[in-house]
Computed example of a mutant assay.
Amino acid sequence: MTLPNIQTKRATLKNYGSGSYLASDVTVLLNMVDKDAVADVPVSQKEALIQSGQRHYSDMLTLEQAPTAMHEQLYTQALEQGTERAATDIAHLAHTLHHVFQRKVNDEHPLILVSLVRAGLPIGVLLQRALSDTDRGYSLPSMHYGISIIRDRGLDPVALQMLLDAYPDSPIVFVDGWTGKGAIYKELARSLETFSDTTHVNFANIFHQGADVIPLLTLADPAGVAWLAASEEDWLIPSGLLNSTVSGLISRSLYTEPSSGLHRSVFYDDLLDTDHSLAFIDHIDAARRSLAILPERLPTYQQPRYQTAALIDTLAADYGITNRNRIKPTIAEATRAILRRDPERILLATADHPDTILLRHLCAQRNITISVLGDKILPYQAITLIKQRSKDS
């Protein structure tokens, strides 16, 4: 039976919002702040501040604008093109989670899905919907939360502790959209080191797959670091094309010192008219429920393979880059970098791949150089190199 103090802690979690998702889809453990209280820093200025070390990227935002008509059109095309694959992948992931955890969880001690804000949110919501679908053989008691992770600053320790206090007997699986170089995996692993001692009271919550296994789940894992992924391919995940308008209208998270509370985020209420978050979830979820195929059990990995590490090393040497943060691989990251950062050039595997239409359109619009390198950058289809604004260190 759940103890009264744990029930109180679980009830407290419900005080937090879900962005523009349903309350049953996710609880986002972020302190939401008014966008008027956040400095709107232009991209070029932000890039100079980041690269010079004057400011960390998580201390400032470039406030989002509504996607252009062309951007919306390309998202719609990507959704049409990728619906069946995304739905199938979610079914396979849910089936695998059911197989792994069916004897370890119940209604009192559910599986806790922790999506990494923001790219993990749509995938986590889709998984929560799938695991809640009692008409399928892979249903599983689960709860879904979103928490912040920030490069160089780690997973929000306040949010994680709230979950560990509320669910002391539940296993946790971390959810992200995709992997690029594996940087977020490393950040996650570093943040969880404190729990890796087998005598730690929360060791079993996190290291339920083994003493060295970080339970990271992604839809796509080109970097080869996830414990569980639907594939290792770099493909056009539709939710990777938009920012807040497919992620619950939530901004990229802003850092807060643990002594001051949760990491912060802005809710873009001014973008409600262009929000696709729930429509995206409903569309993919309906496709999943209509699948005729039987779900498959996916492989899991005990150790990261870092299968693209040598490729990243080669690109860094070829382009004289010592700060690897300037290299943004995968279609999703390459696209987001063009929209949010100041790119120098785009590297493509092929000149006319259908999954890079938006990238090529944005490059033409902004006069960004494209280099087609063929097999040299596989398994990535696209990589953005950020413009150097200060001397790399």
Rank of each mutant, 00 (worst) to 15 (best):
Pro171Ala: 04
Ser191Glu: 07
Thr245Val: 15
Glu232Phe: 03
Leu242Lys: 13
Leu160Trp: 13
Leu155Cys: 12
Ala230Lys: 00
Gly248Tyr: 06
Leu164Gly: 11
Ala220Ile: 00
Glu232Trp: 02
Ile206Ala: 07
Arg252Gly: 05
Gly177Ile: 01
Ser170Lys: 11
Ser244Met: 09
Leu163Pro: 07
Val246Asn: 02
Val173Lys: 01
Leu228Pro: 09
Glu187Asn: 12
Glu187Lys: 09
Leu155Gln: 07
His144Ala: 13
Glu233Ile: 01
Tyr145Val: 09
Gly180Tyr: 02
Glu232Gln: 15
His208Trp: 15
Asn205Thr: 09
Ala159Tyr: 06
Ile250Met: 08
Leu241Gln: 14
His200Phe: 07
Ile149Pro: 04
Leu160Pro: 01
Ile206Gln: 07
Val158Lys: 11
Asp221His: 04
Asp197Arg: 12
Trp227Ser: 02
Ala220Cys: 11
Asp212Tyr: 06
Thr198Met: 11
Gln161Cys: 09
Ser239Lys: 00
Thr245Cys: 15
Trp178Ser: 03
Gln161Asn: 14
Pro238Leu: 07
Phe203Leu: 09
Gly182His: 06
Glu232Thr: 08
Ala159Trp: 02
Ser231Tyr: 13
Asp152Asn: 15
Asp169Arg: 04
Ile237Phe: 07
Val246Ala: 02
Asp234Val: 01
Met162Phe: 15
Leu163Trp: 11
Leu160His: 02
Pro238Met: 13
Phe174His: 04
Arg190Leu: 14
Trp235Lys: 00
Arg252Pro: 01
Arg252Ser: 12
Asp197Gly: 08
Asp165Thr: 11
Gly177Gln: 04
Phe195Gln: 03
Asn202Leu: 05
Thr218Ala: 06
Ile237Arg: 03
Ile147His: 06
Ala229Met: 05
Lys181Met: 14
Arg190Asp: 15
Phe203Ser: 03
Arg252Trp: 03
Pro222Ala: 05
His208Tyr: 03
Leu242Pro: 03
Tyr145Glu: 06
Tyr185Pro: 07
Ala223Gln: 04
Asp169Tyr: 13
Ala220Gln: 06
Thr245His: 08
Lys186Trp: 03
Leu160Val: 09
Pro222Tyr: 11
Ile147Glu: 03
Thr179Ile: 04
Ala211Asp: 13
